[in-house]
């Protein structure tokens, strides 16, 4: 593939990501609408689904906050990181104008709006793959990192402590980050690793369970408990607070026990190329 073709494909990837909610999330929302008993909660999910349909039909951004674009790239030897960065930067300018995306990069010092500035993660691979996540600001603001033990929530350095951390994060988020949520969790290493890996779990399908049986059960159990919090769609009551919990556990430093909790809004926009 030459550079021009790849650039066009990335613009199309942006368009699909901003305007089409992934099928597995649409399906989970449809199921939740059937099950939700709260009247306002049910109405809200119906409105969400109506909007998702209209956005897809009219090819318009589902949500006005088109987020920070985050690219996860599996790179073959055909492309250098430098080349890919250049192609993505150019595609971002085109996509921002064409789709359009909201210009979401604000210079911290001058306060000027700079357009959009993607975050790009690379790894080397035999096969070329791009995952794009458009991550909104509201759900990012309620994402957080815990250091265990944490006396305030009675959380020790064990699986039960991780469970309490996740529940605490969702309880504190209430309706601020656009529930029903999708939650990525990473336990271990250091701050940067749990921040990165917890967010990366949001790329997993809603139906995907951790292949480790114990952790697969843990994901189901925590999901069930979060939905007992009665926060509900948009924080206005109901049983549908979260659609899925995805975890990853890595090694930790003996002195540390970090739990990263990345919260995704219902409008979790991810697509692949």
């Amino acid at each position: 593939m030459n550079e021009g073709d790849l650039k066009n494909k990335i613009v199309s990837l942006y368009e699909k990501t901003a305007t089409e909610l992934p099928n597995d999330i649409v399906f989970a929302l449809e199921k939740a609408k059937e099950k939700e008993q709260d009247i306002i909660g049910k109405e809200i999910i119906a409105k969400i689904l109506e909007n998702v349909n209209q956005a897809k039909t009219d090819c318009l951004p589902i949500c006005q906050d088109t987020g920070i674009p985050i690219f996860y790239i599996k790179r073959t030897k055909d492309y250098s990181e430098e080349d890919l960065r250049k192609i993505i930067d150019e595609a971002t300018v085109i996509a921002t104008e064409k789709i359009p995306l909201r210009p979401n990069a604000v210079d911290v010092l001058t306060d000027k709006n700079l357009g959009n500035k993607p975050i790009i993660h690379f790894e080397e691979s035999e096969e070329f793959k791009i995952d794009l996540l458009l991550k909104g600001g509201g759900s990012e603001n309620v994402s957080t990192i815990y250091q265990l033990p944490n006396q305030k929530i009675n959380a020790n350095r064990d699986l039960d402590g991780v469970r309490k951390s996740i529940l605490d994060a969702v309880f504190n988020a209430q309706g601020k980050g656009c529930p029903p949520y999708i939650i990525g969790v990473a336990v271990g290493g250091n701050i940067e690793e749990v921040a990165h890996l917890s967010k990366k779990q949001l790329l997993r399908k809603i139906t995907d369970l951790n292949p480790n049986n114990k952790l697969g059960e843990f994901e189901k159990e925590v999901l069930n408990e979060i939905n007992q919090l009665n926060i509900g769609p948009q924080g206005l009551d109901g049983k549908t607070t979260t659609l899925g919990v995805k975890t990853i556990f890595t090694a930790r430093h003996p002195a540390s026990f970090f739990v990263g909790v990345s919260i995704g809004c219902w409008c979790l926009r991810r697509q692949s190329l």
Partner: peptide
Amino acid sequence: VGGAGVIYATATKVKNVYKKEFGMPE
């Protein structure tokens, strides 16, 4: 409803804008 951007846009027209220099979102 947060995220229901297209539905609300359909019900909305621009009349005027103040402080455009703050950038589109602001």
